[in-house]
């Protein structure tokens, strides 16, 4: 495993461990993506988080806050000590991402489906301003059951919003169980293609593959891009992976934290 990805995972574990429980499963599944975005691809400046014309990320699956915070802290947006304030009263790091609280967070999200539309709006805004920014957004597979996702999908393709790159964290699990059992997404790749998106499906834990897919998406003109990431909920920590859908939000007591950190050395 890539050293930075390990570090992001360790910091996410410590972050959630500081409050004893949280959204560990869906945080672990996007660690590679967060690494590639913030350490290889995105034009951002931790010293100037509101920099004009910067690339932006909307984490529409807002419950992945902990892995976002770990990545932003590692990148230098705020001190690492902040990670230990997750969900504590008065914190700048609330359970779900909040642009008005956390430096480096570009949009508030948590009510599923909405962040994705916001990202489409941001990408349209960037096109009006012609500032050349790339707008990234991450949605969950469970989140894809929201009708608003598909309203936004239609509009982005219709308006040829080609500065928008979306990722689906397809870990196959949601709070109540397996996506397939609850409300199957069917052939997700075909759906995105049919909605007019340039669609790729890759291993979401392969940094090289993510990087290449982003380069291809950036080169594609006239269409928004969707990169479906085949991922594992809880990736990298065996007992979290084994918890299956129950890792959506689970206990990270002292014992669990120690076991997880030992595995992530």
């Amino acid at each position: 495993m890539d050293e930075i990805c390990k570090q992001i995972r360790r910091m996410t574990v410590e972050c959630i461990g500081s409050i004893g429980s949280g959204h560990i499963g869906g945080s672990m599944s996007i660690a590679e993506l967060m690494k590639v975005l913030y350490f290889d691809k995105m034009n951002v400046d931790p010293a100037n988080p509101k920099m004009e014309g910067r690339d932006r990320l909307v984490v529409s699956k807002g419950h992945a806050g902990p892995v976002v915070y770990a990545t932003l802290a590692l990148k230098g947006f705020f001190p690492k000590e902040w990670l230990y304030t997750l969900n504590k009263f008065g914190t700048n790091l609330p359970s779900h991402c909040d642009m008005n609280k956390t430096p480096g967070v570009d949009m508030t999200a948590g009510s599923l489906g909405q962040g994705f539309s916001c990202a489409v709006g941001i990408a349209i805004g960037s096109k009006i301003k012609k500032d050349g920014a790339t707008i990234y957004t991450i949605i969950g597979d469970g989140e894809s059951q929201e009708g608003q996702i598909w309203e936004a999908a239609m509009l982005a393709a219709s308006k040829k919003v080609d500065n928008l790159i979306g990722f689906t964290d397809y870990n196959g699990m949601q709070l109540d169980g397996n996506v397939e059992d609850i409300n199957s997404l069917g052939n997700l790749k075909s759906k995105w293609k049919a909605f007019g998106w340039y669609t790729q499906e890759i291993d979401g834990h392969d940094c090289e593959a993510i990087s290449t897919a982003i380069d291809r998406a950036k080169a594609k003109k006239g269409q928004p891009s969707m990169i479906i990431l085949k991922t594992v909920k809880g990736k990298g920590i065996s007992f979290v992976e084994a918890a299956g859908y129950k890792s959506h939000s689970m206990s990270m007591n002292k014992e669990n934290v120690e076991a997880a950190l030992a595995e992530l050395q």
């Binding site: 949009m107 916001c118 709006g121 941001i122 805004g125 309203e151």
Partner: peptide, 23 residues
């Protein structure tokens, strides 16, 4: 000035995105 089609929920959040971009 543009139409988003019959999709009011998307319209509201797209507008929020535009606002976050200074519009």
């Amino acid at each position: 000035a543009f139409d988003v089609g019959i999709a009011e929920q998307n319209m509201a959040s797209v507008a929020a995105g535009l606002s976050s971009y200074g519009f």
